[in-house]
């Protein structure tokens, strides 16, 4: 039943999007101006544009996959076609995610377990945290150029704080009794860190992974908006400059798919790593 409604709502929305504007002249009060295809294009047009941008259909309108070499030729014609753009955006997102998560975790652990360090750094962290990270993107492009590095740094900056705060909280919340139990079972300082503090804090880290990967993607796209050689963000900006609503929509849909796949992947990893938790053990 839920599935029925989900499909019905989806098809309904697509139908309004596709044919809604045709009613605009007859019943203007019913159809808002935002449905103008100049802004949002139309599903059918977006689909055709997707086939063109993805080099699935040649400029003559033939399927490229039928003619050997046609797909490669089309890809070779542009240095920022849909596939290359997706590859670069995805690659930079994963790098930003990986560097942000690992450095955020280490910093959170260090400061979370040391009252002295956290006291010293407290004002700086609060100050930095109140800067909207995205506001720094132009500076980063200026400093790191329009290549991949600036996108990774922007994504890293967005991710690192999120992971840092989660890890920090987690490192402070380690159960004292677990530490005591480990000590009484013969654990030295380093062993306590390795076998109690790190795994116990990991649970908090994992909780931040799904938002972290979405944040990373946001960071990369914003970086690409400002200046990039490749990437879906650049595609959107270029399509906007040409007034091509369909082109922008194709890029947005690809981003949506990338986002969904990334989040699903992270959630799977998360579920596996947190399998010891009550909720996940009951599910198995």
């Amino acid at each position: 039943m839920t599935l029925f409604w989900q499909i019905a709502i989806g098809l309904g929305a697509l139908a309004i999007w596709e044919w809604g504007w045709a009613l605009h002249d007859k019943v203007p009060w019913l159809v808002p101006d935002i449905l103008d295809p100049y802004f949002v294009s139309k599903p059918s047009e977006i689909y055709r544009q997707f086939l063109r941008m993805g080099c699935l259909v040649s400029s003559q309108g033939d399927w490229t996959l039928g003619t050997p070499g046609a797909f490669e030729k089309c890809i070779g014609r542009s240095e920022n076609n849909l596939w290359i753009a997706t590859y670069f955006t995805l690659k930079n997102t994963l790098w930003g995610f990986a560097t942000g998560v690992s450095s955020g975790f280490v910093l959170g652990l260090l400061l979370g377990r040391s009252d002295r360090l956290s006291e010293i750094f407290y004002p700086y962290i609060t100050a930095f945290n109140s800067i909207p990270r995205i506001a720094l993107a132009p500076i980063i492009i200026l400093a790191f150029g329009i290549g991949d590095a600036s996108k990774i740094v922007t994504a890293w900056l967005v991710v690192v704080f999120l992971v840092f705060f989660n890890t920090f909280e987690g490192a402070r919340a380690v159960d004292r009794d677990h530490i005591n139990a480990a000590r009484l079972l013969g654990a030295g300082e380093w062993q306590v860190t390795r076998t109690v503090i790190v795994p116990s804090t990991m649970a908090w880290l994992f909780a931040s992974l799904t938002p972290a990967v979405s944040f990373s993607l946001i960071g990369v796209i914003v970086g690409e908006f400002i200046g990039a050689e490749h990437g879906i963000g650049r595609m959107i900006i270029e399509a906007e400059a040409r007034g091509e609503a369909a082109g922008m929509m194709v890029a947005v849909f690809v981003l949506m798919i990338v986002g969904v796949i990334l989040a699903a992947g992270v959630r799977r990893i998360q579920a596996y790593l947190l399998r010891w938790r009550p909720a996940s053990t009951m599910a198995t």
Partner: peptide
Amino acid sequence: FQKDTLFPWR
């Protein structure tokens, strides 16, 4: 311990 201090991740 009286309290449950098993490591939940093990």
